[in-house]
Design a protein around this nucleic acid. Structure first.
Lengths: 308, 308
DNA sequence: TCAACCTCATAGAAACATCCTATGGACTCG
DNA sequence: CGAGTCCATAGGATGTTTCTATGAGGTTGA
């Protein structure tokens, strides 16, 4: 038996259900499997984790203290998996979806899945089709009627489109804990930042464009240290100690929170950008599109209120 | 075949490795499985997701655009799973661990796993033992020598312990989008909050104590609407539309970010609390304990720097 | 006190998935 | 054009998960 084997998502979901319903058999019924199957699965999970999570009683099963923690962590795992599935499902139905949506990468990656999960209970029968393209192409798709709703990042706002702010995002300069900048005492001057080779996203990405637009006035930018096609590729490069990178705060929130990455804010530079929902000007949004827009707007409002 | 089946974490990890190494065979080698096995697993994953994620070329495999997104989402899933495993592993070795740690629930749940993951590359051979107890008990365990390092939340700071700030946490009042308060225009007065029955954590929890201590001066608190033993149980109650709840910002960051929950900040009430590392006064921390403290402190610094 | 009812665990057989080794087809490079 | 790389397929061994049927333990109520 291999060590450090991943637990089974189905088993984690089962455990969460047990914690909600208070019984193995009841949870089994809800998952559409037999009670012994559930029992054995949970036992396997316990063995794999090496921790007893359930206290079996004649009247049902309760969580142990460790089980409580496991369930809470499991909910995070399942939430992330749910986001993945929601995103993938939307991307799969690109054609013929009831609500075709186009979004730029950062919005699509970090915000859209959550909105889709939120949309599910409100509009259970609506299949959302998601196309992930750059902001310029989002505008084209919306204007061409191929997407009913679009989400863009960055400064430019095309004509013919109505828009609503759904949130703000801030680009951050980050380094790994081992990087010299992690210990720097002097503030980071914009000129120094401009002159430093950075790990950046590929040309044409919203992140890259925003950064270059803002930094323009601080002198010519140094050649990139590395150009990578996704946020997480940048993070991988960072983890291995390579130099500073510029990423969306949405992309590195977790890593900043637990110290795996450190922010080095450049002095006096505003790297905020607006995230906007766009649709054809004059068109009245209704039904699912309207619900989705409401959800998205609300999320932006929530984030502004907490100041994060 | 059941629909909406969860993907396999092992398969997701394999896909991530393929994206890093650029080849199915190379990824297989790294995972210690044969190349055909990896190939078939990835094919199964693609079938299950309904999306082609890999572009097979004679010189290797590259991700499709959809694959790029899937990999990024998968990294989140695996990160959460990694946190779960790190937490569970630490809880398992409660006795006889090289570095025994005690932490209050909120810290243990949301911060410790990240620190443990960060500690792994620095101190690969150290087994951390984690006990999750309330803040008062953390102090006892540290003073009694049963834990070398402790993490506490809340206002009280016991004598005989040295401490260092590792972060701040803020309690937030949250409601589900369907709740009347989600649409309220008037600010929430402390008196009204005090008079409202809330969903809260159980008595004795750091979250509950902090809240009651702060609210004391605004008059008697209403009886709780519901008392629940874990943060996520509170969230489940919230999701089903039940009234306002008080939770740590750490616990609801994601939900606030994508609008599944909304914050209703009470006017003029400071619900911040300090999260502190504690150890026996006069004792000089060295080795793993020192590394862990450094990691924890750094994470707090990072969070303060970005203002979240 | 005892039978009916609930809980979860175990046993054994069938179904399924995954693994490996061996091999083949496609393409690149020298 | 041959050697080397890559990924896919075939076939058989292994291991896991599933089901139904049954057992063991405890509660409930007549």
């Amino acid at each position: 038996m291999r060590l450090n084997r991943w637990p089974d998502l189905e088993a984690l979901a089962l455990l969460v259900t047990v914690s909600e319903l208070g019984g193995v058999g009841r949870a089994a019924r809800q998952h559409g499997i037999s009670q012994p199957s559930a029992s054995s699965r949970l036992r396997t999970l316990e063995r794999r984790l090496g921790v007893q999570v359930l206290q079996r009683l004649p009247v049902g099963s309760r969580l142990t203290a460790e089980g409580q923690m496991v369930v809470d962590w499991a909910r995070d795992v399942l939430g992330a998996a749910d986001a993945l599935m929601a995103g993938v499902t939307a991307m799969r139905r690109e054609r013929g979806a009831a609500l075709p949506v186009a979004a730029s990468m950062t919005v699509a990656e970090y915000l859209v899945p959550g909105w889709l999960i939120g949309l599910r209970p409100i509009e259970p029968d609506v299949t959302v089709g998601l196309q992930v393209v750059n902001s310029a192409r989002v505008a084209e798709l919306v204007l061409g009627g191929e997407a009913e709703l679009g989400f863009v990042e960055g400064p430019s706002l095309p004509v013919g489109l109505a828009s609503r702010l759904v949130g703000r995002d801030r680009l951050v300069v980050v380094v790994a804990p081992g990087h010299p900048w992690a210990r720097r005492r002097t503030p980071l001057r914009p000129r120094e930042l401009a002159a430093t080779p950075l790990i950046v996203r590929e040309p044409g990405s919203g992140t890259r464009i925003t950064f270059e637009t803002v930094m323009e006035r601080y002198g010519p930018l140094a050649e990139p240290l590395l150009e990578l096609g996704s946020n997480s590729a940048v993070k991988v490069a960072l983890a291995s100690g390579a130099g500073p990178a510029v990423l969306s705060e949405l992309a590195v929130g977790d890593e900043l929170a637990d110290g795996r990455l450190l922010a080095v804010p450049p002095e006096g530079v505003d790297l905020q950008r607006r995230l906007r929902a766009v649709w054809i000007e004059g068109r009245r949004l209704d039904g699912p599109a309207r619900s989705l827009l409401t959800l998205a707007t609300r999320s932006g409002a929530a984030r502004r209120a907490t100041g994060s």
